[in-house]
Design a protein around this nucleic acid. Structure first.
Lengths: 183, 183
DNA sequence: TCCAAAATGGAGTGTATACTCAAAATATCG
DNA sequence: CGATATTTTGAGTATACACTCCATTTTGGA
C-alpha cells in the first residue's frame, strides 16, 4: 500500500523545520529534538520518515545547492552576468536557503561526506563559470578560463560568507564589482 | 607562590594538542577528551590550567589571527603586495595554523562570541588593505578603497576556504591572480 | 629537609544527544 | 464497515560531552 497523506505532510513539516533551523542557528543547533519541536512532531514520527538526522540534512543541502545556480538546462548558453545575477538573487531573494548553503559548506570542513558533496558541486559550478567565460571571449584558453572561474567564484563565495557573518554587508554591490573586475 | 614549571609545560602541551586537533578535525572533533589524550594529560590537569574548553579555543584562535597578518607595527607603510604575500605564506608555510584560522572562522557562524571576534578582526584587516590601496593610489577615495579591500579580501578568504576543502588546490597561484585583478 | 602551594590522576556527575521500540491511533481501500 | 498498512506517541536506551572533586603526588623556596 502506498504512503498516507499524513506521512507526506509530516515529512514536509520536518524538512521545513530543518531548513529554518539551519538558516537560523546552523548545523550545530539543528538537533533532532529542535527539528521535532519546530515541526510539532515526536521523535518516533521523525524516524518513521527519515532513517537518520543526516538524511534530512542531506535533503535540505541538495535543495540549497539546486537553488544557487540557474536551471542546469541553460548551462550551454548562459552568460557570466546571468550566473552572477543568479547568485545575487539567491542571496537577496532566498536568504534562508542561501544561509543554509553557506552554513553547510562551512560545516563541511569536518564531515567528509558533506565535504565531498560540496566539492563536487563546486567543481561543476566552476566549470559552468569557465564555459561562460570562454563563450564571452573565445580566445581564452581552457586553462585560463578555469583559473579565472575559480578566482571569480572564490570571490563570490568569500563575499557571501562575509554576508553570512554580518547581514548588514552589501553582498550585491560587492559581488557586482567583483564580477566587473573579472573582465 | 608562583606557577610551577610542570604547570607551564602542561599548558603548552594542551595548547599544542588543541591547535593540532583544530587543524586536523575541526572544532567539532576537538573535544576535551581528545585534547587530553593528545596532550597526555588528565581532565583534572586540563581544568587546573584552563577554566573551560572555550578558553583554550580562544587562545588558539587569537594565535591564528595574529599569525595571518604581517606585524601590526608595519601597518602604516606596508604595501598590498606585502599583505597578500603574508597571507600566501601563512597558508603555505603555516598550514596548520591557517587551517585553524579558517575552521574557526567557518564555525563562528554559529557561536556569536567567536563570530564577533572574527568580524572585528576582519574589519580591522580590511582597513589595513584599504590603507595600502590608498597609499598605492592616493586618488582613490576612502569609500572606493574600502569596497576594493572587501572585494580583494573576500576573494582571498574564499580561495583559502576552497583550499581548506581540498588541499590540492593551488592557493598561492590563484591568490596572486586575484590580487592582480582586484588590487 | 620540611612544608605549603601547585599540579595530577581518575573516578564520578549531570546533561544533551541520536536513536529505538511497542502499543495505540489513524488513514486507506475493497 | 472491516481489514490492513501506515503513522504517531512518548517513554526509554546508550553514548558522548563538558566539567567537578578530592585524595595523592610533585614542586620549589626557606
Amino acid at each position: 500500500m502506498a504512503r498516507y497523506q499524513t506521512g507526506i505532510r509530516t515529512e514536509a513539516a520536518i524538512v521545513d523545520a530543518t531548513r529554518a533551523l539551519l538558516a537560523d542557528v546552523g548545523v550545530e543547533g539543528t538537533t533532532v529534538k529542535a527539528i521535532c519541536d519546530r515541526a510539532d512532531v515526536q521523535a518516533g514520527s521523525f524516524y518513521n520518515v527519515f532513517s537518520s538526522k543526516e538524511q534530512v540534512l542531506i535533503q535540505v543541502a541538495r535543495e540549497a545547492i539546486q537553488a544557487v545556480g540557474p536551471d542546469p538546462s541553460l548551462a550551454a548558453t548562459e552568460t557570466l552576468d546571468e550566473l552572477v545575477g543568479a547568485y545575487i538573487s539567491f542571496v537577496v531573494d532566498e536568504s534562508p536557503l542561501a544561509r543554509v548553503y553557506l552554513q553547510m559548506a562551512a560545516s563541511s570542513t569536518t564531515s567528509s561526506s558533506v565535504a565531498r558533496r560540496y566539492l563536487r558541486h563546486h567543481v561543476q559550478r566552476a566549470g559552468r563559470f569557465a564555459d561562460a567565460m570562454v563563450r564571452a571571449d573565445p580566445h581564452l584558453t581552457a586553462e585560463d578560463a578555469a583559473v579565472g572561474a575559480e578566482v571569480l567564484l572564490g570571490a563570490l563565495d568569500g563575499l557571501a560568507f562575509r554576508w553570512l557573518l554580518d547581514d548588514m554587508f552589501e553582498f550585491a554591490k560587492h559581488a557586482r564589482i567583483a564580477a566587473e573586475r573579472y573582465g
